[in-house]
Simulated assay, not measured.
Amino acid sequence: MDFNLSPEHLLIRKMMAEFTENEVKPIAAETDAKTLYPRENIEKLFDLGVMGMCIPKEYGGQGADPLASAICIEELSKQCASTGDIVATHNGLCCDPILTHGTEEQKAKYLPMLSTGHKVGAFALTEPNAGSDASKGQTEAKLEGDHYVMNGSKIFITNGYVADVFVVFAMTDKSKGTKGISAFIVESSFPGFSVGKHEEKMGLHGSPTAEIVFTDMIVPKENMLGREGKGFNIAMQTLDGGRIGIAAQSLGIAEGALEEAKAYTKGRVQFGKPISKFQNTQFTFADMELGCEAGRLLTYQAAMKKGSGERYTKEAAMAKLFCSEHAMKTTTKALQMFGGYGYTKDYPMERMMRDAKITEIYEGTSEVQRIVISANMGL
């Protein structure tokens, strides 16, 4: 088995590393401190073809594979996990289900918007009483002639107050539980669509998270994504792919923290030598490096399986679980190496640690990932 990246993937990594260093890193601290959506950089990422990278060229995309997308998210997240999150949500949770489940008319209309049209995408599943258990959703869509009327709300929606296109899940038949959930493509311009509370979060301050409210919202009948009652299957399949994005984001956070800690400990002299030379520090670095390498293999494996059309549910869950937990461990250990400085905003460690925590929670908590893994082990 060849573990080397192709020349194309190496070129994408180089491009994204340079973009991250020159465009993302200089504003990362300000983005976090002022809770700013990095609009200019997202516009530049559209111009680079990163937004909608896996969309086929006939719809305006780059026609790249899931591994290329994962590499982009990984590199961005080394310096700004918020930017990585925006890209991961757009590509994995909005573009992908439309590409996978959309009609030709839907793909022809929406995919060019999301790739070259500078329209940001989002995914709306979670509700106040329906987190991990989607069957408890209260948002309803009732067919009335040539359109559906949608009422309800969604919470914790990434890209919520900047997105133009949403993949939304609603009950079309509450009596059927998960088999009564359907998926829809919704535009923020639809009558009855509104943005509610803007969430104030512990981390990912540059990633816009909000409540979305539907009040007698009119959704054209042709905007149903897939067949009626198949929304739950679409959501679960989409989350499989989304977990690769979160794994890549987590991996990038851990790699970024590792590099910051290496640079700091090489220059910090205590007891007559750089603290990077102390055995305890070196043992910690060894564990951090080991975790990053293992996480990279798990993430790339899942991405390559997705790209080849193989089933990848277990692999995506393993990558997301391992990388998110490793990101939390690594940022904690790295912050400790900075001592008191790590606890201040003079260095990026406290931001990286705050950003890492959400990766253990969203798109399925660590506990949910363990359920998914064990359910796919043939026990």
Rank of each mutant, 00 (worst) to 15 (best):
L239Q: 09
G241Q: 12
G242Q: 04
G242L: 01
G242A: 08
I244A: 02
G245L: 03
G245Q: 04
G245C: 05
I246P: 03
Q249R: 15
Q249C: 15
L251C: 06
G252M: 02
G252I: 02
G256R: 02
G256I: 03
A257K: 01
E259Y: 05
E259C: 07
E259N: 13
A261Q: 02
A261F: 08
K262S: 07
A263F: 04
K266Y: 09
G267S: 10
V269H: 00
Q270M: 13
F271D: 14
F271H: 14
F271Y: 12
G272K: 02
G272Q: 06
N280F: 09
T281N: 05
Q282L: 10
T284V: 15
F285S: 02
F285C: 00
A286N: 10
A286F: 06
A286K: 13
D287S: 12
D287F: 06
M288K: 00
E289L: 12
E289G: 05
E289F: 03
L290C: 11
L290T: 09
E293R: 13
A294H: 10
A294T: 14
G295S: 04
R296V: 05
R296K: 13
L297Y: 12
L298D: 01
L298A: 14
Y300M: 10
Q301W: 06
A302F: 03
A302P: 01
A303K: 03
M304H: 05
S308D: 12
E310G: 04
Y312E: 07
A317M: 08
M318T: 09
M318R: 11
M318D: 13
A319V: 05
L321F: 15
E325Y: 09
H326Q: 13
A327L: 07
K329C: 09
T330L: 11
T332N: 09
K333P: 02
K333I: 10
A334N: 07
A334Y: 05
